[in-house]
Write a protein that binds this DNA or RNA. Structure first.
Lengths: 161, 161
DNA sequence: CGGTTATATTTCAAGCATAAAATTTTTATG
DNA sequence: CATAAAAATTTTATGCTTGAAATATAACCG
């Protein structure tokens, strides 16, 4: 009977765990870097912010607008957060709040004409910036990378301590 | 003379640009997802936050501590931001500010013994959480993915409009 | 020296973000 | 119908984050 233990594994190997930790730090660093570049470009080029752009992007698709709860669900941020950003965009004439028929609890939020125009200009620049920032990724690598990222986005720590 | 234009390319193809845009959204989604899981785990498990953990992690390596400016440089956040986080950690007995000899402008920040103990417990959980969240990535894929992310982190939009 | 420039940090104002509590309206149920 | 439960949103408290201005000290230089 052979008693040689080749790898003293405990289900997970420490080295794999450390490698994943380093990978996470690189994922974070890359994302933060792109976000920082975008923030700076939005600030100097359009005097606006990424969260404002995100709200406008979500509303640009639907001519009829979205309810506050739909907006926070699409953007995956809290209700209260959306309230504040929308407040400021309404003050700036970029958004309007429209009451919902038959439900006085809810409000729909919609881009104004000025808002749509501003968004189009920003979206065009945004696409160029991203194209530039990600141009180290070859086109044929995109599908696999995409899949890996989607896989990460689906995982949960539920059940772990 | 053949005048057929197969691809009306303008140096960059629109489809490649759109594909990069979608890739960026997935990169962002994956990162935000992991951050959200970590935040929730730190909150419920240790009643603390990711930024506090980041500061503690940076200080854990150096027994002698770091200057405020070194800390903000390592963490890549603004000076004023570090001031606030450190203030709260000092209030909680996790950090101490130590004057620097021969330079009364600067202060060094150091983990207390209690701080080191708390960090070790948190770091261990943190590593398990990451291991779990990234376990969809195979070990043999890590080096290539790593390289792609580093490549993104190096790009700049300087010179673009 | 004395005055300028550079460095280290904090303060400030504004906005982003969350979780939890509060408010208002709708829906369900006895 | 009355009242309880559910749903949509806002408010509140707290903390993170930035960029810019303010403060304090150090270094340089004529």
């Amino acid at each position: 009977m052979s008693e040689v233990v080749v790898k003293p594994s405990h289900g997970h190997e420490a080295s794999a765990s450390k490698a994943r930790l380093r990978l996470w730090l690189k994922l974070l660093k890359a994302t933060k870097h792109v976000e920082a570049e975008l923030r700076e470009n939005f600030r100097t080029g359009f005097d606006t912010t990424l969260p404002r752009f995100d709200v406008m992007a979500a509303l640009y698709r639907d001519e009829q607008g979205l309810k506050m709860s739909e907006l926070s669900s699409v953007l995956r941020v809290s209700n209260g957060n959306v309230t504040g950003i929308v407040d400021r965009l309404v003050d700036d004439g970029i958004l309007v709040r429209v009451p919902v028929d038959n439900d006085r609890r809810a409000t729909t939020v919609r881009l104004t004409t000025a808002g749509r125009e501003q968004f189009e200009a920003m979206a065009s620049s945004h696409e160029r910036w991203i194209d530039c920032l990600l141009d180290g990724i070859e086109a044929d690598e995109v599908p696999h990378l995409s899949e890996q990222l989607e896989c990460i986005a689906r995982k949960s720590t539920k059940g772990e301590d």
